[in-house]
Amino acid sequence: MTRISRKVCIIGDFAVGKTSTVTRFVNNVFSEKYLTTVGVKIDTKDLELVDGRSLRMVIWDIAGSDRFSSAEFAYMRGAQGYLLVVDGTRKETLASALALRAAVEERYGALPFVLLLNKYDLVDEWSVSDAEIEALNKQGVLVLCTSAMTGKCVEKAFRDLAKSLTGVSAA
């Protein structure tokens, strides 16, 4: 079996649920306890593609920030796509995410990405409006409402990104 590897990053403001999303995807577990990431945490997950190849996603979970310094830009180097995570209950994290996206595109060009509106389990407390989501959709941004706690759409987010990276769906 042919195996290919792709580096992807997961970025967003602090405490939006990036590490929880990765942990849900890689280990299928969730912890209520908030643990800050310092620097970057690297994990891997293998996906089988429908063309028979195996994709190893090397996931760089970058410490939360509303803007990138040279260290974060260095982490992004060599990434072929990324997940942009927003906390649906904190409206300001959407602005942070969009600012990060702009910074990444300015430095590395337009990379494939999926925007995750996370904490869907708290949707009653969301402050991101339907109109804002609709506006993102109209810009062609792939937006998924996810919950690292319940697992909602987490797998799909990575699979959608994998397809963007390889042009092939995961099996």
Binding site: K7, G39, V40, A74, R77, G78, Q80
Partner: peptide
């Protein structure tokens, strides 16, 4: 993965 060994780089706290 994705690391270009032909360029010097410094990555902290991995």
């Amino acid at each position: 993965t994705g690391l270009d060994l032909s360029e010097a780089a410094e990555l902290s706290a991995l």
